[in-house]
Simulated scan of single mutants.
Amino acid sequence: MKVLQFLLLGLSLFFLSCEDTKKRQQTIPDDTSEKSKETPIQKKDTLTAAKKTTTYPKITSNNVVEFLTEYGEANPETKVRINTRLGQIDIALYEDTPLHRANFIYLIKQDYFDDTFFHRIVPDFIIQGGNSDNASTNKKRYAIGEDYLIPAEINNRNHTYGSVSGAKEYRANPDKQSMPFEFFIFLGPQSSTSHLNGNYTVFGKVTSGMDVVEKIANLPADEGEWPQQNVVIEAEVLE
């Protein structure tokens, strides 16, 4: 009889133990639900990713004016900075050249200029940036729109020390349109501006860092006016 009571007591304890375990297992899904996994940091990362995936149509010769006009209205910034291994160059963009200003801001915000170079340097004349021999530069141009030019916005503003202008793909350009991806900073004497004034759009001016421009201009270069050591550009919008 005692043996039977002992067996019944053992079985009761066994079933109670299984029931407790089962109850603990049932509470686990509530603590590890998908809702509880979504932390505030993850939500923030999701929003950041969404902003980065904003896409724009390719810019073409047909939509360039409409696109840059609308983009410029939504992005009115006029101050930018170019970072190089030799220092910083701050630039103020002119509001009366709205297409060039909008294009420059757009390229910076699309990270186009990052890892491009000041690829042409001429002492006492200009430094030109926005190109490189990296495959990534051509990929960026293709993604943004490689078949468009910026209509000329030439006014009475001449080239002076520190002027920032749009480069041209070729000089025989009757419409005086600018290449969208390259620009040059003028540092030469006024006597060197005769073929520039009235032919190239001046859309900004260096406000700080002309000493850096001078350093870049006087670096050793090859016969093609390309610096022997690359001057890599990292660009950012200030305000």
Rank of each mutant, 00 (worst) to 15 (best):
M1C: 10
K2S: 05
V3T: 13
L4W: 08
L4I: 15
F6K: 13
F6Y: 08
F6P: 02
L9N: 13
L9V: 14
G10S: 09
L16S: 07
L16R: 09
R24E: 10
Q25T: 15
Q25G: 06
I28W: 05
P29L: 01
D30C: 09
T32I: 11
E34F: 11
K37N: 05
E38I: 13
K43A: 11
D45M: 15
K52P: 01
T54L: 14
T54R: 10
T55C: 04
T55Q: 04
Y56D: 04
K58N: 05
T60P: 07
S61G: 10
N63S: 01
E66R: 09
F67D: 02
Y71P: 06
Y71G: 08
E73N: 13
T78A: 04
I82P: 00
Q88I: 09
Y94E: 11
E95F: 07
E95A: 09
P98G: 02
H100W: 04
R101E: 08
R101F: 02
A102Y: 01
A102W: 00
F104C: 03
Y106W: 06
Q110E: 11
D111E: 11
Y112E: 08
D114N: 11
T116F: 01
T116W: 03
T116A: 09
F117Q: 12
R120N: 05
I121A: 10
D124V: 03
D124C: 00
F125I: 12
I126H: 01
I127T: 02
G129P: 09
G129K: 07
G130R: 05
N131R: 06
S136T: 14
N138L: 11
K140V: 14
L149T: 11
A152C: 01
N155I: 15
N156F: 09
R157I: 15
N158T: 13
N158G: 07
H159F: 05
G162Y: 07
V164F: 00
S165Q: 02
A167T: 08
E169S: 12
R171G: 07
A172F: 03
A172M: 09
F181A: 10
E182L: 05
F186I: 09
L187S: 06
S191L: 09
T193G: 01
S194F: 08
N199A: 03
T201W: 00
F203Y: 07
K205C: 01
T207F: 02
T207S: 05
S208A: 12
M210A: 02
V213A: 07
K215L: 06
N218I: 14
L219R: 11
A221V: 13
A221W: 06
D222E: 06
E223W: 08
E223D: 10
G224Y: 11
W226D: 15
Q228C: 08
Q229F: 10
Q229R: 13
A235I: 14
V237I: 13
L238D: 11
L238M: 14
